Amino acid sequence: MSEPNWATVVLTAYRSEEGTVQWVDAVEEEHDQRKQNWPFDLRKVTDLSNEEIESAIRFAERTELLSQVGTGVHYRLTQKGFEVAHDRELRKEQQSLTKGQKEASDTLADFTVILGITALIQAFAAVISAPRYNLTLATVYVMLLGALLYKRDDWIHST
């Protein structure tokens, strides 16, 4: 799921050193070539078109996430914008951690199943060597092994 354009602009400002970004539209660019060297020029650090940037900035201004600095082409993150961007970054990081924890949990569960299967095979081998209970215990172990393999995904992914 990709970020909305306004979030891309706000997060770019959040990640900049001073919470400030620049956007120079084509008309202003012709008049002032010096504005091209700003490190957080939205056209250079995002994949957004001029129209998308303009729309995103206007939305961010209306919702008080960004404010224009003076009469220039710089936009600064407001306190509300900082809080929104910070919350989005935290949520993104938590989702990443949760995904990693789930993968680790699934791997651990897979190894546990392998260990259980190994123990059942070892027990089955021991039963076969005892002639008195071969058929009964062998049948029980085969059924347990089958149930373990059949229900494995249900037990592991029940959370």
Rank of each mutant, 00 (worst) to 15 (best):
T118I: 09
S2Q: 13
S2T: 15
E54D: 13
Q94K: 10
D110A: 00
A13I: 07
G116R: 03
S96L: 05
R132E: 15
G146Y: 14
R76D: 11
L11D: 02
V84M: 02
A104I: 15
K102W: 11
D153E: 05
A138K: 03
G100L: 12
S105V: 13
E18P: 06
E64G: 07
E93L: 05
R15Q: 12
F82M: 06
L65C: 01
L120T: 09
G70Y: 02
P4Q: 03
T46D: 08
Y150I: 12
E83H: 05
V21W: 02
S2W: 08
L120D: 08
G116M: 10
E17K: 06
H86C: 04
F40V: 09
A85K: 01
H31G: 12
S158Y: 15
D110E: 06
D32F: 09
T46S: 08
D41V: 05
L66S: 00
V73I: 10
M1E: 12
L48P: 08
Q95H: 14
E103G: 08
Y150S: 10
A130W: 09
V142L: 10
L90M: 11
Q95I: 15
T20N: 09
A130P: 11
M143D: 15
V45E: 02
R15T: 14
E93H: 03
Q94E: 12
V127I: 15
D106A: 04
S158D: 15
D106S: 06
V21T: 04
R152Y: 10
E51M: 02
V21N: 00
A85P: 06
L135R: 04
H86V: 03
E29T: 04
E52P: 04
A26Y: 06
V24A: 02
E64F: 10
V84D: 00
L90F: 08
L66V: 00
L149C: 13
D110N: 02
D25T: 05
F111H: 05
T71D: 08
T78Q: 05
R132G: 14
F124W: 13
P39G: 03
S129P: 09
